[in-house]
Amino acid sequence: MQGFDPALFEQIEFLLLAGIVLVLAYLALEHKEIVYAAFFFGFMASFVAGFFLLLEAPFIAGMQIAVYTGGISTLIIFAVLLLPRAQDSTLEKFATPRARQISLVIAVVVTVMTGFLAVLFPWAESFNEAFVSISQDLNGLAQWLWFENGIYVQMIALIMITSLVGAISLLRMDKAEQLGAITGEFGVEAKPVLIDDLQSAEDGQSVPEPKEVDE
């Protein structure tokens, strides 16, 4: 690139990425079809990986694509498919115009405060030179993560199994709820004779317990 300032090139890359990410994030929030919104979230997550490439951190970029684009967007798409209730979400509807105005004001305040913080924060002083060398060096990164901060890896494992146990306990609660419906009015008030024993019941014989369903 003759006669082209590489620093300017980096700025252009960042602005391009930031613009794309903002547009995709807006679409992920506001798209009418929630499945499309989930896909836009996945695209947004993969463009965020571009930020990490700009910051010279290939491992984090790969992890971003593997976990967010691969894992989290699959999770969201599955959640949407399994819960049709989520497809007509009323989260964005405000009860009254007043509630809408209040939330708009809160959103503006949070945005302005975040902007101030981003401008005022001493980014240059908080920059740790030691991390620059390990961000590109997988061996150093592995040493930092597994050897020096190994306890956090174990904590991540514990958090992950918490999510698994939580998912299972939610399913058990859901099942107990569904079984509870059987003992309610509908189940008990159903015909006292099972359908396949109707003939023998009408004949006036004693009704044996059906055996074939027990096996």
Binding site: M63, A66, V67, G71, L75, L82, W146, I161, L164, L171
Partner: peptide, 20 residues
């Protein structure tokens, strides 16, 4: 059935484990 959702949670967990 919600139960299929657990498989994606499993996928995410294995994904993170694989990255580490």
């Amino acid at each position: 059935p919600y139960n299929y959702f657990v498989y994606t949670v499993l996928f995410v967990v294995i994904d993170v484990m694989g990255a580490f």
